[in-house]
């Protein structure tokens, strides 16, 4: 087990743990704006942005799972 590698992985995991809820909050923020918008172009734009935030969150979740697998493997060494 490389202590440096474990430390680096833990740091990355921590950053993602903090970042993921922010993506979800941004999604809820745009979704709320979409619901409040009265004209269709604004509604569509906010819905597009909301979907983007969800996609970001899914992407970050995948990276997080990958990093956690790497960490578990590193700790087994």
């Amino acid at each position: 087990m490389s202590k440096e590698k474990v430390k680096e992985l833990k740091k990355k995991i921590e950053a993602l743990v903090i970042a993921i809820p922010r993506e979800l909050e941004a999604y809820e923020f745009y979704l709320d704006l979409a619901e409040r918008s009265e004209d269709l172009p604004s509604k569509e734009m906010f819905m597009f942005l909301a979907k983007q935030e969800l996609a970001h969150r899914d992407h970050l979740e995948r990276i997080l799972n990958d990093l956690q697998t790497q960490l578990e493997e590193e700790l087994k060494k």
Partner: peptide
């Protein structure tokens, strides 16, 4: 809820 009870340094 927000952080799924994850244990990190912070």
């Amino acid at each position: 809820t927000r952080f799924q009870g994850r244990r990190t340094f912070i």
